[in-house]
Design a protein around this nucleic acid. Sequence first.
DNA 1: ACATCATAAACCGATTCGGTCAATTAATGT
DNA 2: ACATTAATTGACCGAATCGGTTTATGATGT
Lengths: 202, 202
Amino acid sequence: MEKFLSLPVKKQNLIIDAALKSFGTNGYKKTSISDIASAAGISKAMVFHYFGTKKELYIYLVNTCVDSISTEVVEKFDDSITDLFDRILYTSKLKIALMEKHPNVPSFIQSAYFENADEVKEEIRTIFSKDDGKTMGQEITFDGADFSKFKDDIDPNLVMNMIDWISEGYMSKMADAEETDFDELYSVFEECMQLFKRNFYK
Amino acid sequence: MEKFLSLPVKKQNLIIDAALKSFGTNGYKKTSISDIASAAGISKAMVFHYFGTKKELYIYLVNTCVDSISTEVVEKFDDSITDLFDRILYTSKLKIALMEKHPNVPSFIQSAYFENADEVKEEIRTIFSKDDGKTMGQEITFDGADFSKFKDDIDPNLVMNMIDWISEGYMSKMADAEETDFDELYSVFEECMQLFKRNFYK
DNA sequence: ACATCATAAACCGATTCGGTCAATTAATGT
DNA sequence: ACATTAATTGACCGAATCGGTTTATGATGT
């Protein structure tokens, strides 16, 4: 592991991104170290040199992802923002900042959360259990948000459901977008939230 | 192939669903016939007995999926429905009817559309090229829909984007829902469309 | 009783798996 | 210039799995 951490950060990220992508799309069992190595442009032997075993690499990825989400989304979250749509925009912005560093983190933790391979599933559960599931979903966004501004005939639960779907769809488009689309996609998302504000609030 | 088609339909569907699921989530190369066989509760030898080769099975699946989407969604589509949200609800209902027969069709055709394995990609392209891409996406829904009812300050393009995201998110929740959730999920979706009607129309 | 068929276990050669190692190359110190 | 060390990889290992075939078994109809 120290071997890997003493690498130039650029190269570290190259390898991590390749691994996150492979594991995230194909799961633990269906991902081979060769896949990761060739995607990262290095030899298979180097991956083992850096991480020891496949399992160690995987667990390392889960830990660093949970950590980075925790420090870059959960901790940076601003509780003082009470407006629901502003909250969504804010967390969305935080997530995008994360994705600019490592685009494949979201799909990877999602996949890891449901991973069932015997060799890793227990350790994964313990890692996630320490975290109250804060790294997943959008509980943070809704908890303590202000729902009182809605028109009286609008069901807040319905709105939450809708937002859940919309941000899932939005994020999945984000995931396989080129870097250029990134900003444009976000600005459309922003307009969307403002549309809701204008039409759903009293 | 005749071997397979002379099976009781129940068993046919069991095998097809197992194959759609495996290929859809893991792609062509990463899916093994053993995966499919054990998921369907039969022996590996039987799959080869029915379909000959892995490739033949895959191509068969693509063809039947394109066919069934074409006959059960595209052809049944009702052009006389002009209201945008009614259109969305209607196509959504058609898709759900399809998913009740074969829950994994959407994820499979999506995966097949982007499949890159050398052994099958050319044949896939020719299959899809005959179809004008009507089996994919929601072009049908938007083409010829009536956007004139929206309030003047609402951008139709923005709404289309939003709907694109929302139905993607909604469908992905649908994909891994149990049968009981099915109806409830749809009724929430229905409420959602009505919410839009009430608040976005003049 | 025999011929037919569906079925799966055992098997085939080939490939790929996770993982190691020797050997080559690049970097470093002197 | 050379010796030493570290970085990197191609070749390799046994085991597992791949796509696909063959064989053995048992049920069925005649």
